[in-house]
Design a binder for these strands. Sequence first.
DNA 1: GTCTATACGTTGATAGAC
DNA 2: GTCTATCAACGTATAGAC
Lengths: 233, 233
Amino acid sequence: MRACGFTRVCRARWQSRRGRWRGAAVRAFASGDHGIEGAMARTQGSRSEITGPLIREAALRLFARHGYAAVSMRQIAAAVGVQVGTLYAYTPDKQTLLADLLKTHMEAVLAEWHDRPDTDALTRLDHFVATHIAMSLDHLEEVFLAYMELRNLSPENHAMIAGLRRRYEDALEIILIDGQREGRMRLDDPRLAMLALIGMLTGVTNWYRAGGRLDRERLIAIYQGLARGAVGA
Amino acid sequence: MRACGFTRVCRARWQSRRGRWRGAAVRAFASGDHGIEGAMARTQGSRSEITGPLIREAALRLFARHGYAAVSMRQIAAAVGVQVGTLYAYTPDKQTLLADLLKTHMEAVLAEWHDRPDTDALTRLDHFVATHIAMSLDHLEEVFLAYMELRNLSPENHAMIAGLRRRYEDALEIILIDGQREGRMRLDDPRLAMLALIGMLTGVTNWYRAGGRLDRERLIAIYQGLARGAVGA
DNA sequence: GTCTATACGTTGATAGAC
DNA sequence: GTCTATCAACGTATAGAC
């Protein structure tokens, strides 16, 4: 066991320190490349507006690349160009940093998704696939992280993130059920088909690298074809 | 960075200790449940024949459950009911323990796979799917681990395991290419279809739990249907 | 807001007795 | 083959100066 793994002891100890955090989760989540890896430690100065996002970006990149458990707070601080202690002005602990990353991402995913209940199920499936792939390419690291690091969440955080993911998966399952009812899809088991499709789609983050041989539109079109085929359209 | 991450320094230091390990990888890989979690530390006694397998089983289970980086050698030792030092009579270091687990598994996967080049591509696809799912259900933790922990391998070990996995993926891709040539499959991009199918199949390890509502044969049949559909059969 | 310094548990790994 | 004891390095997190 590590010093302060997933227990809530640390949380309580920490909350008694100052009132800063009391229930306020970090919300903003800027993206983009700020050349984190090459950053060096500076020796003073306040830059509160940008340090927060930089920390989340560095944590995201490092967690995605090496895994949550393999990354130390020191590494994150070094990537940002800041001392370790500074991180704790932006997050109560490492666990919360991960949870905030995943929560923000999953909420963005759900906010991005707009079903089109007035169209046929196959069109809706195409739309789901396109949205998912586009999101995966634009936020490779987030999608990958949300897929890989569920098991490193504390029980409370796990329940929260799993709930969000569940809502996302349900959105797809509804489409499949409707498709079956409309007679546009032939499915033995809509739930299993949903899980299979999610696995197929999420797998993209395992091999996709920017600048590969396939452009975005083509990739989406191919996956739409695969998905349609899988559901028997 | 951790004390002895992926560097080869430790390896060299260790090799100078005794001749025991020089190139000899742990080979055997017993499976099954021996009630590891409840084991308690004993205080003496030699049981060389069973300790090795027990260590690998405990490591496999713990790595799969919590992730390689999150599991300590002490946890593994405790699960086996042995002291930490004892582990190092069976493996030079933690990294090698992981690599041996993955290598043994991937070699078993490749040994298990027998293509049937004299039959049609759709039958061969069915056979691949059935073999893969059966392997996944029989060795949930190995398949899951081989899928998740590639990034925690040292560069050398990563290259080795990735090579084995490549051979496995190629086996599927060949089937798809043949299917296209035979006119039995309609594919925009065989390589992409292969990656999508692998993602779909491997995803099973993320949600499958023994004793669920679907029996083995039904699960295989459903996935065969999904795979056939995806390739346009 | 950031730094420096530090507390203190845990880590991977080794040495040497039995 | 296993244990006990030990090491140095590193882990997360905190305190207090500026």
